[in-house]
């Protein structure tokens, strides 16, 4: 049994669906951090059977919206002095800015550096659909 110790200070992203851990790791660009980062894959889980976990030492400033787009079942634990001081469930972001491009080739956000793509969630049970705040075209978010 592989053992990874807990972190004393930082963030633990738990209950990540198996396979999403690496996607989150890449999307958050955690390889660029100069602190200790652990990506655990296929860990035994009572609730999920198997899960992925990411632990980041001495760092809490991550983009929660990205997590919401990739895995809505993940939880975020903030750790201080080896104790969990807050536990938050990730949610699908209602508004997102600058995380992905508008699919409309005629949209101003595709050519102007000042126009950072901004979207508002369009409620839909099956798909992650966002309406562009500039051109109103719907873009479905896919990794």
């Amino acid at each position: 049994m592989l053992k990874v110790t807990g972190i004393t200070q930082g963030i633990v992203i738990d209950h990540i669906k198996t396979g999403n851990g690496l996607k989150i790791f890449n999307k958050l660009r955690l390889d660029k951090l100069d602190t200790t980062v652990v990506l655990l894959m296929n860990v035994d889980s009572k609730a999920l059977g198997r899960k992925d976990i990411i632990k980041i030492q001495d760092y809490t400033d991550i983009n929660i919206d990205i997590l919401g787009l990739i895995d809505q079942n993940a939880t975020i634990n903030i750790i201080k002095n080896s104790k969990i001081i807050s536990k938050t469930k990730v949610e699908i972001p209602k508004k997102v800015k600058g995380l992905f491009q508008c699919r409309n080739p005629r949209c101003i956000t595709t050519i102007d550096d000042y126009a950072i793509s901004e979207f508002t969630l369009v409620p839909n049970e099956d798909k992650l659909q966002y309406r562009c705040n500039y051109c109103e075209e719907i873009t479905e978010y896919k990794l």
Binding site: N104, R106, C107, I108, T109, T110, I111, D112, Y114, A115, C132, N133, Y134, C135, E136, E137
Partner: peptide, 8 residues
């Protein structure tokens, strides 16, 4: 010609 330009 770009959609959203006047909003910007």
């Amino acid at each position: 010609p770009r959609e959203g330009a006047p909003l910007l």
